[in-house]
Structure formats: structure tokens, C-alpha cells
Simulated assay, not measured.
Amino acid sequence: MKEVIMSSDLRARTALITGGSRGIGREIALALARSGANVVIAAKTAESNERLPGTIHTVAEEIEAAGGKALALQVDVRDEVAIAEAIGATVDVFGGLDILVNNASAISPTGLLETPLKRYDLLMDVNTRGTYAAMHHALPHLLRSPNPHVLTLSPPLPRRGVWFGKYMAYAMSKYGMTHCALGVAEEFRDRGVASNALWPRTMISTDAVRVHYPDDYEQGRHPRIMADAAMRIFAKRSNAFTGQCLIDEAFLRDEGVTDFEAYAVTPGIALAEDILME
């Protein structure tokens, strides 16, 4: 049976996005703002960087210009106290929390011998532990929302060990985020909390990709595709759509979207698949 779709009007709803100062997080923040939501940007970057533009403050300004209300908070998701305080500030300012987006992430496409323990710890602390901590502190408030959603930007669980063999530490940390998403879905299913994972089929051409992987940038899609998918997820009834590991293109096709060329950074060329895609 097809799930009931709610209105895309999110006025008076409050979302907190970790790591939302640029890229996919920023795009989701702006989409939420255009629907009238209150948006909290909880990220590390508070000062501009000429190589990677965007800070919590510039995104907050964009949110306000797009029609939402913004709160910019400098947060390192490795710091549990900072996460708890950010969620507390969100509730104090906006009166509650309806949506949590676990977007903050560290990347290291390296094998075992090229990934020292310091880097392993960073991946686990930001990706898996940071996601768990945000969920742990957000859930008491989400349980009071009429339509609570947790969205975690992480891949479907693999059927084979391909990516563990290529990028063991990174894969472990990202699949750990998915374990968190599925765990919340099952534990809080009967209490009406939706928890889903979302991952791109193709490379998403963010500023970070442009700087660190310039050869791949033209072969990717605009982060807007992930924001469009996220908004359709948030519009669903939380008690009817949970425990899903979604791929952006497949999900949007199921939702009736047919024009994917519009998302291409360079229309007409072959797209690069994102890593961790089987």
C-alpha cells in the first residue's frame, strides 16, 4: 500500500543538520528553509576558507533569505557535550525538534596499510560515534514531535565485502552510520519515529570533491538531487515510512521523477558512481 504523503509545508517545524556548512547538508538546509522550516546548522566551520567556501554563518544567512529561520552553532560531532548543548539550544530557541539530519562525515578512501590508527579513530568518531551521539541526545525531543524524522546520509548495507577490501576503515564507519539508522528505526518504530538512510547513486559534485577529487567533479550530480530526495522523505508520515536504505535516483523514480539530466553538473557525459555503491 502506498504511504500517505503529507504537505511539503514545514512551517513551524525544526530541523538540525550536522555538518551543514556546505555541500549536501547546505542544500538540504536551503530546501527546508524554502518550505518555511527552522533550520539549525551544527557544524565545525565558523571561519571562511578560500579553498572550501561556506561557514555556519553564511549558510544561516542563506536560510533566512530563503524564507526559513536559522540558528548557527559551531559543533564538532566528536564532542558529546557540544552535541547535547546544540540540541538543547535548538529546543530553547525553537521550542522543539522535528527532524535530525546526520550529515557530518569524514572520508578516507584508503586501504588498511594507508590508514593509520589516528585516521581510523577520526572516521569512527565523526561518522559512527557522532551519528550515535546525535541520535542519543535528539530522540527525547523527537519523540514529542507530531512527525519526527531522522535521516542519515549513509549507504545501504552491502551484500558483498568489496568496499571493506578497498577502504576498510571508511566503509566500517559509514556502514556503522547505517546500523545506527536501522537501529533507531526498529527501536522506535512503535513510537512513530521515522529513521532512514539516504545515499547517492552517483558522485555528488560538492566543493570538497572539486578541491580533493577534481577529475571526478564534472562526472557528478548537483547536491540538489539529495535535497530533493530528503524533502520527499520528510513529507511522509513518520509512522508509515521508516527503516529504509534509499538510493537517491531509485527513490525519486519511485516518487515519479523522470528528469535526471537536470541534476548533472555536465549534461550528456557518463556519470561516476559514488563509492560504497555495489
Rank of each mutant, 00 (worst) to 15 (best):
M1H: 11
R11V: 04
G19M: 14
G20H: 08
R26F: 02
I28K: 07
A29Y: 00
L30E: 11
G36E: 06
A37M: 05
I41D: 05
T45E: 04
A46D: 13
P53L: 05
P53R: 07
T55L: 13
G68Y: 02
G68M: 11
V77Y: 04
R78N: 11
D79W: 15
E85L: 11
A86V: 04
A86I: 06
V91E: 03
F94A: 02
G96D: 02
I99G: 07
A106P: 00
L113H: 14
P116I: 08
R119F: 11
Y120W: 15
D121T: 05
D125N: 15
Y132K: 08
A133D: 04
M135C: 15
A138G: 02
L142D: 01
P146E: 13
P146W: 08
P148N: 09
H149E: 00
V150Q: 06
P156A: 01
R159V: 07
G161M: 10
V162N: 15
K166P: 03
K166R: 14
Y167S: 12
A169G: 03
M177D: 01
A181M: 08
L182A: 13
L182W: 02
V184N: 07
V184T: 11
A185T: 06
F188Y: 15
D190G: 08
D190R: 15
R191M: 06
A197H: 14
P200N: 12
P200V: 02
A208P: 04
H212Q: 12
D216Y: 10
E218D: 14
Q219D: 02
G220T: 03
P223Q: 04
P223W: 11
R224I: 10
M226S: 10
M226E: 12
D228H: 11
A229N: 03
A229L: 08
A230Q: 09
R232F: 09
R232Y: 07
A235R: 05
N239E: 13
N239A: 14
A240C: 09
A250R: 10
T258G: 00
V265C: 05
T266H: 06
A270M: 01
E273Y: 12
I275M: 06
I275A: 09
M277G: 11
